[in-house]
Design a binder for these strands. Structure first.
Lengths: 335, 335
DNA sequence: CTGAAAGCGCTTACAG
DNA sequence: CTGAAAGCGCTTACAG
C-alpha cells in the first residue's frame, strides 16, 4: 500500500504538503495541488486511518450503543430504524459506525465496553436508551467523550419523540370517534422512560373532553403480545362496557385484538383498539393497527446531526419530535 | 490518559516489558508480571487502540457489510438476526463491529466504502449478501482482507442455510397433510440466490411423492405483501382446485392469506398457505404462519467464528445449516 | 527473562 | 505558499 511518503516523492513535495493538500488546507497553489492529486490518483493512495487517528486524535468513528437488555433487541424496529437513520447521516458525513451493545444487566460493569470507551478509538457516542434498566452512558461521560442520547436519559445533548403528544393524539382520535368508555393497557412505569408521559398525554386529552381519566379501568402488561391478551381478557371481563382500548405498544394491542375477538367482540365494530410504535406487523395484522409512530429514523438522523454539531464545538438544544398518528382499521366510531 | 510509558515508569520496567506482559508473552517472572499489572491497575491504564493498530497492523475491528439494496434493510429480520449473532460472537472474542452498508445500486463504486476497505482499519469483513443485485465483496478481495460471506456469493469462506432443504421440508410437510394440488408463489430467480434452490427442494419432494411438479400453477411476486395478494388472486381464480399455496417468503404468504379469505376461502380450512423466513409477524398474524426458519442468528455466529479461524491462519470449510420447519396454524390437512 | 531502539504512517506547530 | 522535524503510543525483531 502506498504511503504519504510515496505520494510526496512522486509529486516532488514534502509529506507535510501532501497531508495538508489532502485535508484541504488553503494557501496552496493550484499547481502543487494538482501535482499532489495526480500522484494520489496514480498511486491509488488511501490514507491509513490508524496512523491518522494516532497523530490527529480523531478517528472518524462514532459508537452507537444500546444496552443489551433482552435477546430480541436486534429486531426491535424502533432501535433498528433509529440505527438506520444514524447510519444514513454518518455515511453522508464520512463517519463510521461502531456497534456496541454492552451487557449491563449484571452489576459488574462490562469491561469490554469500558475498555472500548477508554481506548481512544471513539470520537463520540450516540446512546439509544429506550430502557431505563441500564445506562451505557456513565463511562462515556466520565471519559468526557462527546455524547448524545436518543431518549430520556440525562445528557447535555439529546433527541426523543414527544410521548405526551403521542398519548394525547391517540386519545383525541378516539374521542373524536365518539368513545367515552376507555380501557388502558399500560406497562409498569419503571419499565420505560416514556410511558409516564404517554399517560399524561392521555389524561390531558381525556380531561379536555370532560372525561374522568382516573375512573378508566387499567392493567399493566410487559410489552408482549401474550400479556396484551391476558390484560384484555381481565379488563373486558370486568368492564364489558368499554368501547376503546388504548395499548402502550403494538404487540400488546395485537394480543388484545386476538383476545377480544375470541371473546366475541368485533374489532373495530364493537371495540376499538390502538397501539403505539407502528412496528412492521402493525400493517400486516388484521385489522391493521391504528397507532403512533415515534419517527425513529428521524430520531436517528437528528441524533447523528447533533453529535456532529457537538464535535464542531457548538451546543445544540435538545430536540423533541412530534409523533405521528397513524389511523388504520383497528379504530372506528363508537358502536 | 496514562500511556504505556507511564505504566513502565511506575512499575520500574521498560515499555517493551509492559507491552509484552499485557499481551501475555511467556518468559516473564511472576514478580515482574505482578509489578506491571499493579501499575496498570493503579493508573487505570487502557491501551490506545489507534497506536496499537498502527504498530501491530491489527485493529481488532471487523466490518459487517450488507449492501443498501432497499430502504427497509435495517428492519429485515434475517439480516438483523444475523447481525445479532455476529455481534454476540465478536463480543466474546473481543472484536469490535464496524457497520457498513455500501450503496451499490449505481454503477459508480461507493467511494466511502472503497476508502474504508483500503484504510487499513479492518482486520476482516463479514459480508451478508442476501441479494445478488450488488456485491460488496470485490474491493475486499482485491485488497486481500480476510472475508467470509453469509450467503451464496463466491468466497473462500462462507456459511448459509440450505435453501433446498427448506423447500423440501415445507413441501414434505404439506404432502404429509394429504395435499396434492399445489400453487406456487415464487419470485424471479435473479432476485435472490436462494430461491432457485428452494424450487429444487420443492420439486424433489413433489417427485418423490409421485407428483408432477411442472404441472403446478405458479406466479412470481416481488416479496411484498401486496404482491402476495395479487399473485394469490390470479392463481386462485384460475385454479380454484388448489388446496395448498407455497409462498417463498412470509410477507407474500400473509398477503395471500388476506386475499384468499376475501375470496371466501378459509385458511387453513379450505386452503393451506405457507411462508418462508419466520419473521416476527409470522407468529402475530392470523392464522400464525407455517414457515421455515433460516436460523439467522446461528448463521451470524458461525460466520464470525469462521472469520476468526481464518484470522488464525486456518482454512475452515464452508458451512451449510439445516433450516427448521416451523409448523403453525396456516397449514392443515387437505379438506 | 528483560530492554534499547526503530518504526508503524500520519499531523501539526513552527519557521521561513 | 511550503518544508523539516517532532511526536502520537504502541509493537517487535534483535541483543544480551
Amino acid at each position: 500500500m502506498p504511503t504519504l511518503e510515496d505520494v510526496a516523492k512522486r509529486a516532488g513535495v514534502s509529506t507535510a504538503t501532501v497531508s495538508k493538500v489532502l485535508s484541504n488546507t488553503p494557501y496552496f497553489t493550484d499547481a502543487t495541488r494538482l501535482k499532489v492529486m495526480q500522484a494520489v490518483q496514480e498511486l491509488g493512495y488511501v490514507p491509513n486511518l490508524a496512523a491518522r487517528a494516532l497523530s490527529s486524535g480523531k478517528t472518524h468513528i462514532i459508537a452507537v450503543v444500546f444496552p443489551y437488555v433482552y435477546e430480541a433487541i436486534f429486531t426491535d424496529p424502533n432501535i433498528m430504524n433509529t440505527l438506520a437513520g444514524i447510519e444514513a447521516e454518518c455515511t453522508t458525513q464520512g463517519y463510521n459506525i461502531l456497534l456496541s451493545t454492552p451487557q449491563l444487566a449484571s452489576d459488574e460493569p462490562d469491561t469490554h465496553y469500558q475498555q472500548l470507551i477508554q481506548s481512544g478509538y471513539l470520537d463520540g457516542v450516540i446512546a439509544i436508551d429506550s430502557y431505563p434498566t441500564a445506562s451505557a452512558l456513565k463511562p462515556v461521560q466520565e471519559k468526557g467523550i462527546p455524547a448524545v442520547v436518543i431518549g430520556y436519559e440525562a445528557c447535555d445533548y439529546s433527541v426523543r419523540h414527544d410521548d405526551q403528544a403521542g398519548g394525547q393524539k391517540i386519545m383525541e382520535h378516539l374521542i373524536a370517534l365518539g368513545h367515552t368508555r376507555f380501557g388502558l393497557i399500560e406497562v409498569p412505569e419503571d419499565t420505560n422512560y416514556g410511558v409516564k408521559y404517554r399517560s399524561i398525554g392521555v389524561r390531558a386529552a381525556a380531561e379536555q373532553a370532560g372525561l374522568d381519566y382516573d375512573s378508566f379501568p387499567r392493567t399493566s402488561g410487559d410489552w408482549s403480545t401474550h400479556s396484551g391478551s391476558r390484560c384484555a381478557a381481565a379488563l373486558l371481563a370486568q368492564h364489558p362496557d368499554v368501547t376503546a382500548l388504548i395499548c402502550y405498544n403494538d404487540r400488546m394491542a395485537m394480543g388484545a385484538i386476538q383476545q377480544a375477538r375470541s371473546m366475541g367482540r368485533a374489532v373495530p365494530g364493537d371495540l376499538s383498539i390502538t397501539g403505539y410504535d407502528d412496528i412492521p406487523s402493525a400493517v400486516l395484522c388484521d385489522p391493521a393497527l391504528t397507532t403512533i409512530s415515534q419517527r425513529s429514523p428521524e430520531q436517528g438522523r437528528i441524533g447523528a446531526r447533533l453529535l456532529f454539531e457537538v464535535l464542531d464545538g457548538t451546543h445544540p438544544d435538545p430536540v423533541v419530535l412530534d409523533p405521528l398518528l397513524i389511523v388504520r382499521q383497528s379504530s372506528a366510531p363508537r358502536p
